[in-house]
């Protein structure tokens, strides 16, 4: 049972100020207590089910200069491409053949190369293969989200990266993404469009994670009250290999990452929490039971990466968990979890 432990913090009824206190302690007992509470709550809310999904990159043209991203506009290393509708169909078929039923469609930010209409057409094709389709694309207008929703899209992923405005400005050198407010207001537009799920997050390592996570939690809690029908999801991708970098990234340790996950579960009992393939398998497997509800599996972050499996590391970020969909499924089953492949059936949105 959850109780007021050593810290005097009531983990069963966390207030935002408690989160601030939790983040300021480095206390082994507190962390242990949080882990127990997060595990119990996750089991009660979600049982032993973990949903599996895979990303599908359809285009990587990008006008943004985000200093931390492999797809940034001036990068000459990344070959730029954009799949045709036929190629998208073949990518979907190849991905669906692995057993995946939930798919996240991604593009870079280019209204010229990958306009909303193109994304929409891709989603219509994807929805023939996958009962659940979500998008992770540049921020759109409300009516554009609405069109995606009507085309069968049920979820949108949009990360603010950081809530520190000055730092945001510093790290986003050029491109439409430079406008902080247009991005931070995107979840409101998504919610108003009718979309069922919104996944939000910050990129850990850009600035002091405590401030960023607090801001994220406050943002999501506000949206929950405003749009109670929307299911919110959280993700905590973290930058790796941050040493000796000119951009002054701040490393987030495994212990800190673990604390963030537990705090997220306790503060948002019903939120979906996903864990990225950026994480190493050993760590990924360990933290599942403390709040994770969703994992990507057998992921490729290359455009066209499923038809043409490649050894080259030229995706948006390096995938640190190279296991196939079947391998991830087997790992989950061995740990007593039910890998859920089908979690949604499109019911014709209107």
């Amino acid at each position: 049972m959850m109780s007021k432990g050593l810290s005097g913090i009531d983990l069963a009824h966390l207030a935002i100020d408690d989160i601030r206190r939790i983040f300021s302690y480095d206390d082994r007992d507190l962390l242990e207590e949080m882990a127990r509470a997060a595990r119990e709550l996750t089991r009660r809310q979600f049982g032993r089910a973990i949903s599996l999904y895979a990303p599908l990159y359809i285009a990587n043209y990008c006008e943004n200069e985000c200093v931390y991203c492999g797809f940034h506009a001036s990068s000459k290393i990344i070959p730029r491409s954009k799949l045709t509708m036929d190629q998208i169909d073949r990518e979907c078929a190849a991905l669906a053949a692995t057993g995946i039923r939930s798919c996240l469609i991604l593009t870079g930010e280019s209204r010229f190369h990958s306009p909303p209409q193109y994304i929409r057409d891709a989603c219509i094709i994807a929805s023939r293969y996958f009962p659940y389709v979500a998008v992770e694309v540049y921020p759109l207008e409300e009516h554009e989200y609405r069109e995606l929703y009507l085309a069968g899209v049920d979820g949108v992923t949009i990360y603010q990266e950081t809530y520190d405005r000055a730092r945001y400005d510093e790290l986003h050198l050029a491109g439409p993404k430079k406008v902080y407010d247009y991005r931070v207001e995107a979840p409101d537009r998504v919610a108003r469009s009718g979309m069922r799920q919104i996944s939000m997050g910050v990129l850990l390592g850009l600035t002091d994670w405590r401030q960023d996570i607090m801001a994220l939690f406050e943002h999501v809690r506000h949206l929950e009250r405003e749009y109670p029908g929307v299911e919110f999801g959280l993700a905590f991708p973290r930058l790796r290999r941050v040493a000796d970098d000119e951009h002054h990234y701040i490393e987030v340790s495994d212990k800190e990452m673990f604390k963030i996950m537990c705090a997220a579960r306790l503060f948002f009992p019903r939120a979906g929490i996903s864990i990225s393939t950026r994480e190493l398998p050993a760590f990924r497997d360990r933290i599942i039971e403390f709040g994770v509800t969703k994992m990507s599996a057998g992921s490729s972050t290359r455009v066209g990466g499923y038809v043409e499996r490649s050894e080259y590391d030229d995706g948006q970020f390096q995938v640190h968990d190279p296991r196939s969909f079947d391998e991830v499924k087997a790992m989950l089953m061995a740990k007593g979890f039910d890998p859920v492949v089908t979690e949604w059936r499109n019911i014709v949105n209107s």
Partner: peptide, 28 residues
């Protein structure tokens, strides 16, 4: 919420339950 479907099946049998609910969204 079951950890595996075999355990779910066993639970139906041992309880003697004659009516179960299934979410359409989970049927593949």
């Amino acid at each position: 919420k079951f950890g595996n479907k075999a355990a779910m099946k066993e639970a139906i049998i041992t309880s003697g339950s004659q009516l179960v609910t299934v979410a359409l969204r989970r049927i593949d």
